[in-house]
Design a protein around this nucleic acid. Sequence first.
DNA 1: TTATAGGATGGTAGCGATACCAAGAGAATG
DNA 2: CATTCTCTTGGTATCGCTACCATCCTATAA
Lengths: 341, 341
Amino acid sequence: MSDKPRRDGGADIKMSDIARHAGVSPMTVSRALREPSTVSEKMRRKVDAAVREFGYLPNRIAGSLSSKRSNVVGLIVPSIRNSLYANMVQAISDVLRTNGFHLMIANSGHHLEDEEALVSALLAQRVCGLVLHNTTHSKQVRDLVAKTGVPVIETGNLPAEPLDMVVSYSNFEAARAMTAHLGRLGYRKIGFVTLPLRDNDRSEERRHGYFAALKELGLPADPSLVLEAPGGFAEGADALVRLIQTHPGLDACFFAGDVLAVGALFECQRRGWAVPGRVAIASFDDLDLLRHAVPTVTTLRIPRDEIGRRSAELLVNRLLGAPSERVRIDVGFEIVQREST
Amino acid sequence: MSDKPRRDGGADIKMSDIARHAGVSPMTVSRALREPSTVSEKMRRKVDAAVREFGYLPNRIAGSLSSKRSNVVGLIVPSIRNSLYANMVQAISDVLRTNGFHLMIANSGHHLEDEEALVSALLAQRVCGLVLHNTTHSKQVRDLVAKTGVPVIETGNLPAEPLDMVVSYSNFEAARAMTAHLGRLGYRKIGFVTLPLRDNDRSEERRHGYFAALKELGLPADPSLVLEAPGGFAEGADALVRLIQTHPGLDACFFAGDVLAVGALFECQRRGWAVPGRVAIASFDDLDLLRHAVPTVTTLRIPRDEIGRRSAELLVNRLLGAPSERVRIDVGFEIVQREST
DNA sequence: TTATAGGATGGTAGCGATACCAAGAGAATG
DNA sequence: CATTCTCTTGGTATCGCTACCATCCTATAA
């Protein structure tokens, strides 16, 4: 190939070329492509023919610059890997696509500084909207968002002071509800395993919810019943074993995050601990896995795809002209009682 | 609907504003931002100060149009939900990001027609490169790619006639190797459960691999030992039960796709079928889950993140000027023998 | 028939950056 | 001291499209 990396290939057909070959003005081509109804049948046919003949692809970059309008939404998630986010991303992607928008995705790895850099980068790309799976932001981010005025959806938690629109559930309420549920089932010594609390308001809220429920149940708040563990099968297993060693009377354990519960369940199978006979296990988030494991696992169903869908819908509506009003949607959650408790 | 959706907010600072406030020309600002080394220390400081003062964010859309260069890579996966792809996506995203590129993602839902529409849309956005998790394309797609000359990575299979660059493993070889492995372990009646074959060359290749291995093993090729199932726990369970009902002598089953094996394993636990005593179970793709299940599950390790990483690296190199040559990387696979076989 | 509205077209001027070339200022050379 | 070279800086012309306004034509009303 050539010296300079060229990426527009040989076929560099532009609108004016199509116009010339169709015997119309560039404006007519532009209109025929974007608002066909404003163009006469005859013109439209001429344009369509030329477009097809040359395989013309309008340059959306130029279009965006000229119209000051973009059709790309930016999304920042803590981790793309995590299947919970994946569900949400898929839902967002689907809604955007059916409305002619595209999705630019980035992952912050749970770091606030990274979020800052990514928000800047996405805004520099002039995305027309943002979805942030995170509700605690640096001042920089808040300023940027305020200054540019892009519509923003926050997700993953229900913040006290939202940037703009929010679609989420309450981590506090969810954790409290599950803990209370365990109490109602008669469990008295309930362990709590959480994802790392640092830089993660969601984990923090869940922990508060756990303690709030204990209080309501009239159970002692024993900090040594709380363990912090990075998400993962092995970590869940490990956490359960440690809890049982230090608290032989443990009769239930609530794993507030990602596959921890399943790891623990497998460990019980390995050690021959009956679930829920020896220890009951409850999880957070309705992974498919939990419904099929043996025994099936009690969990909190968070409607991740609904979150994605509604986020995208709100964004699209706003972009299509809906008034700029604060919206706060609590999608709620549901306790799914299964065999493990 | 308000009159005009504006998305550039109040703060609409452009390079010329920064230039004026810094007392330099726009070109100097542009250079100070992109190639600071070509600008004198003094100028750079003036520019930086002004940039910070106004919180200026360069407009990459304008930049791209002007330079005919974009820093966005397009990615099309069959499903964002699927955690296998998620691993790859994350790896791609990471590499791109450290090189200053962004990722636009779309999912085709396994439909070729959708791929076509998405490729067009991404090319209209003037992405500087494409990653396609699919190696069978419509003529339209092949033409588009050829005409625009964008660098393309294909992934997910090793095609006979690649579009451009390929990073993958051989589904045929992988399935053959696993089937042969089961044969070597002494299993004689080996079932095969595959994902839907329609529009999916990867599944098709796996099936061929299975039959090729049977032949090498001198085992009869019995089509009734092959079942097609959509991915999922329940589907895997169901498939195994049906196979065992129709073939009581079944001593092993190879699940060539997505969580099918785990679903089957759970079913065995429910029915009290010993694994591998009653039936051995082998899977495809090294989901974390398989390493932790009880029993642990024999599987094929496909280096999904390596695929993502190397894809992105190839793309970045090409974009940074590497010569345009066909590259075909076979990342291989590995049989992971565990307790289930 | 003339006036007038309204829909369909086209011309022109940007959008906000970068490429390319010209020019000025020093530094280095003979 | 003149001359050449290099390093910075700035001016100008796009990039490919769309907004906006002017124009033209046809249809309807008076």
